[in-house]
Simulated assay, not measured.
Amino acid sequence: MANITSATANADGRIAVVGTGLVGSGWAIVFARAGLAVSLYDAVPGAAERARALIGERLGDLEAVGLVEDPAAIHARVVVADSLADALSGALYVQESVLERVDVKTALMSEIDAVIGPETWVGSSSSGIGASLFTAHVACRARCLVAHPLNPPYLAPIVELVPAPWTAPETVRGVRGLMERVGQSPVEMTREAEGFILNRLQGVLLMEAWRLVEQGLATAEDVDKTVSQGLGLRWAFMGPFETIDLNAPGGVADYARRLGGLYQSIAASTDQHRTWDEPLIATVEAQRRAVLPAAELSARSAWRDRRLMALALHKREMEAADMKEESR
Rank of each mutant, 00 (worst) to 15 (best):
V78T: 05
R50D: 11
P71H: 05
A72H: 09
D82E: 15
A73L: 10
W121P: 00
A76V: 09
P71N: 05
A73V: 12
W121F: 12
V102Q: 12
E63N: 07
V122R: 00
A114M: 12
S89D: 15
V38L: 05
V122D: 00
S97W: 02
D82N: 10
A72C: 08
V80F: 01
P118H: 12
T120M: 07
R101N: 09
G117E: 12
P45F: 06
R101D: 11
T106R: 15
V65H: 06
V78W: 03
A51C: 11
Q95C: 03
W121N: 02
L88W: 01
A73E: 13
D113C: 12
A114K: 13
L99M: 12
S97M: 03
L92W: 05
A73Y: 09
L99P: 00
V78E: 06
E111N: 08
V38I: 08
M109A: 00
E69Q: 14
E57W: 11
S83W: 10
L67A: 07
V79S: 14
E57H: 13
L67M: 11
S126K: 02
K105W: 08
L40I: 10
A64Q: 15
A91S: 13
E100C: 04
R101C: 05
D70W: 06
A91L: 08
R50K: 15
E96P: 03
R52L: 15
E63C: 07
V80L: 02
H75E: 15
D42V: 00
Y93N: 02
V115D: 05
A37T: 09
A91P: 07
T120N: 04
A47Y: 05
L92A: 05
R58A: 14
L108R: 00
T120P: 07
V102M: 10
L54A: 14
R58T: 07
E69V: 08
A91C: 08
V122T: 02
D103K: 04
E63Q: 15
S125F: 05
S97C: 13
G66V: 05
